[in-house]
Amino acid sequence: MRTLLPVLLLSVFCALVAWQCEVQQSFAEGERLYKANCANCHMDDGVGLGGLIPPLAGSDYLTTHRDALPCMLRKGLEGPIVVNGKTYNEKMPGIPTLTPIQATNLLNYLNQAWGNQNGLYRLDEVTNAMEKCASFN
């Protein structure tokens, strides 16, 4: 028993570290995807650009349209939308090749970056949403 306890504690500790790493890593992957696909328009710090490109940092749209976002990333967005009380009416191209894993990493990065504190997405939730979105094609 005396030898078992430290071993037990150690393994709990390792599991925690591994879990932490996993979470960290998925944000890192999301950040990489963000820099490659989104930062040109929404900027590195998510502030957007004047009346042309809406912000992602502090955006209420992320919470009010939570279920629609996975599909939107794949299909793009067009027409008037309201973000934090301000109307935007531009066009955002979609990424048709985006996979559910990539979308999950991307959305989870957005939801915790720049002070955002929105609930994280699970992979099955995103996969479902993207499957439904494909059937609208």
């Binding site: 040109n40 900027m43 490109i53 191209p93």
Partner: peptide, 15 residues
């Protein structure tokens, strides 16, 4: 205007 790549960043810095 409908530039999907670098233009918004250049415009932000231009601003």
């Amino acid at each position: 205007v409908h530039c999907p790549t670098i233009c918004p960043k250049v415009k932000a810095n231009g601003l």
